[in-house]
Amino acid sequence: MKKKVFMLCIASVFLIGCESDEKIESESAGVETMSVSAKRKCASDEVLKDQMATDPGLSKRISDIENFTQQKIQQNFQSRLVNGVIEIPVVVNVLYRTAAENISQAQIQSQIDVLNKDFNATNSDFNNVPTLFAGVKANVGIRFVLDQVVRKSTNKTSWGTRDAMKKTNQGGLNPLSPTTKLNLWVCTIGGGILGYAQFPGGSSATDGVVIDSKYFGTTGTATYPYNLGRTGTHEVGHWMNLRHIWGDATCGNDFCADTPSHNAANYGAPAYPHYSSCSGNPVEMTMNYMDYVDDRAMFMFSNDQKSRMLAIFQPGGPRYSFAQ
């Protein structure tokens, strides 16, 4: 596998690009029915751009975090573990208008269960990783524990991506202890968006992950082909400083040397092997959680992705408060 070129323009790389998406729509008498995204879509790019526009210092903070991450990786740091793993308390904020949107405790727990399996390599499909990538598939070693569920009835039909769901004064719910707890917001986002995350470096007042209730967990309202909780895995990966595997540009850079160069995002369930037209025509790691494939088609992180995630929990890192 070709080691990717690291020195790109840092500020521009961190504008995480989210591919445009298609919706399945049916129009009759001017009425749009529907709702399940035909292609995975996150809104991290749009959110990050909005945050940079309102917070001039964010670009530098993100650049500093990347420099810190690379330094830690080069130092071959030892993870600071508690009972073998980093343990992260999770607060789930449910904003609902209908009874279906007020998802059950069982559905919430199913998402926590998926995160624990995917980040600890105990997912049943982990063994489906092809031989080509078997040497780099990773057990990240992070445990998630459901800390609290907060529910709020609202009149909103959709929340968009301007973080309104994270603000009590805009009808949402402020995050609880965001420097020591991962906050998840479950709501109807709209626009065909499955979810989005805030990257390390953003304001603690809006820190966390947003996931549409139709793509949360594995039961209840969870909707095929995004009904295996992998939207949560993908977005929490972003929250832990992972980039999309295609580097948000044609043959771009995700800062992980052990992930092959991808042309762009992949969708659906690509047949293996799927070759890239990037230099060397590598086989793409389409089964990586940071691609855009369907839930059933993603089932691994790589060792370099693991190193990036664990680096942010090291002393001086942007999420060190979670590891203390």
Rank of each mutant, 00 (worst) to 15 (best):
K3G: 09
G17E: 03
C18M: 08
D21V: 10
E22Q: 08
I24T: 06
S26M: 14
A29E: 08
A29C: 00
G30Q: 15
M34E: 15
M34A: 13
S35N: 05
V36N: 08
S37A: 07
K39A: 10
R40E: 05
K41H: 14
C42V: 03
C42Q: 09
A43R: 07
D45S: 12
V47A: 10
M52W: 08
A53Y: 04
D55I: 03
R61A: 00
I62F: 01
S63L: 09
I65T: 02
E66L: 09
E66R: 00
N67P: 00
N67A: 11
Q71L: 11
K72F: 04
Q74V: 13
Q75D: 05
Q75R: 10
Q75P: 03
N76I: 14
Q78I: 15
S79C: 14
L81N: 09
L81T: 03
L81K: 08
G84C: 11
V85M: 15
V90Q: 01
V91L: 11
V92G: 04
L95G: 05
R97D: 02
A99H: 13
A99L: 09
E101V: 00
I103W: 06
I112Q: 06
I112Y: 14
D113V: 07
V114L: 06
L115C: 00
D118R: 02
N120T: 04
A121S: 12
F126G: 01
N127C: 12
T131D: 05
L132G: 04
F133I: 11
F133G: 01
A134F: 12
G135A: 12
V136F: 00
N139V: 04
I142G: 03
Q148T: 04
V150H: 01
V150N: 02
V150S: 01
T154Q: 07
T157E: 13
T157R: 11
N169H: 13
N169Q: 15
G171D: 03
P175K: 02
L176T: 15
L176M: 14
S177H: 09
L182I: 11
L184F: 07
G191Q: 04
G192V: 00
G192N: 02
I193N: 01
Y196A: 01
Y196I: 10
G202Q: 00
S204D: 06
T206K: 11
D207A: 10
V210A: 01
I211W: 01
Y215P: 04
A222E: 04
A222F: 09
Y224N: 13
G232I: 06
V236Q: 01
M240N: 12
N241I: 09
I245N: 08
W246P: 03
A249T: 12
A249Q: 08
N253Q: 02
P260F: 08
N263D: 13
A265W: 04
N266K: 15
Y267G: 03
P270D: 07
A271Q: 15
S277R: 14
P282R: 05
V283W: 13
A297H: 00
F301Q: 07
S302N: 05
S307A: 15
M309V: 14
L310Q: 03
A311L: 13
I312C: 08
Q314M: 13
Q314S: 10
G317Y: 08
P318K: 01
R319C: 07
F322W: 07
A323T: 09
Q324N: 15
